[in-house]
Design a protein around this nucleic acid. Structure first.
Lengths: 192, 192
DNA sequence: TACCTTTGTGAGCGAATACTCACTTACTAT
DNA sequence: ATAGTAAGTGAGTATTCGCTCACAAAGGTA
């Protein structure tokens, strides 16, 4: 489960390819070119292409989970939500190349392992969101006339579309600045 | 721009493959197998694979545009919004195989033509939504403390994630029933 | 020195990829 | 009947795919 330095480098390169050239651009040949060594060298570090994709998704999930876990909760759902998204926007501003994998646009395919990794990745964000929303609802700060799941889906969907647009724009707008406005808008909607 | 019967059949088959096996499953070989004729026959109807994908996206955009345009507007944003989504849910319930293309998860790649077609497709939904929301805001039915664009993004994002989950579940839940609940929730949030 | 492990290389495997071409078949219009 | 056309076939192209293997260079350990 632990990743070596070289493996991490390969994963980062895979993310870059995925974001720049799409699923079809992620080939062993391109990966080797990106790493500036031969194709066969890739197989010193991973057994298969599938393993690389799964490792990429798990690494992302782990990293995000760690970051969100270390986030200090103030107990105020308002600021907690802002912090959560600021954290996300900051991370992806610094790691453009992982954007495609965030919600795994297009990765979905016949591989069971990959699909499970995708669901786990989405679960990380959904889990933390749910905690915050539920807390806010029990404290009466967030409206109770909607189910927690519904609120989570609305927030998560908005977030995902924001990321999608950012990539479609080729990263030309300020993810964090625009994102913060969206979060403000969402808060306006869901607060009591 | 006009599609012949056979071309439409191929596009439908392409949608099926895309939804069932992902981007990598959409090959000329699989397409021919799905159509139950030879690979070379595909090229009697389309010049290239790219042309097939672009045609698929444009056909979807056209169909949705036509359906939404023929939708009767009551003038009440409340019911108009419900009708708009009912229309969408109905269409995709009957055409599972186009779900992947709805918001083009994973199609994004190096082809300029494809990316433009994707943007046009998203624009169709966004356009109709914007009209309804703006109307509702000017009538005072929908809250004015948020920008129209923000509301549209929130609704669109929620919708897109709903579709994504439906596919991830392998179409096991009732798209329309669950979707209607979501729309109700959204209305609760955005109405004055 | 001798040996083992790690990490690279280059050649090459069979399969799959998008696509082409010469050719046939069936229908339609004159 | 004749000729043109639309729509199919099967064999073949060059290229790319993921992946394997024998081998070499480098560094640590006995």
């Amino acid at each position: 489960m632990e990743l070596k330095t070289r493996q991490l480098e390969i994963i980062e390169a895979a993310g870059r390819l995925l974001t720049q050239k799409g699923i079809n651009g992620l080939t062993i040949k391109n990966l080797a070119k990106e790493m500036k060594f031969s194709e066969s060298a890739i197989y010193r570090h991973f057994e298969s292409k599938e393993e690389i994709i799964v490792a990429l998704l798990r690494y992302l999930a782990d990293t995000i989970e760690t970051r969100l876990r270390s986030m200090k909760r103030t107990g105020s759902p308002d600021t907690d939500l802002k912090t959560l998204f600021d954290e996300q926007f900051l991370f992806f501003s610094q790691h453009h190349h992982f954007v495609v994998a965030v919600f795994s646009d297009g990765l979905m395919e016949e591989s069971r392992q990959i699909n499970e990794a995708i669901q786990a990745l989405i679960g990380v964000m959904a889990g933390h969101l749910t905690t915050i929303i539920k807390d806010g609802q029990s404290k009466g700060v967030i409206r109770n006339d909607l189910a927690t799941d519904q609120l989570v889906q609305i927030i998560l969907g908005t977030y995902k579309l924001h990321m999608f647009k950012w990539r479609l724009s080729a990263f030309t707008f300020d993810l964090k600045a625009e994102g913060s406005k969206l979060v403000e808008a969402l808060l306006l909607l869901i607060k009591n």
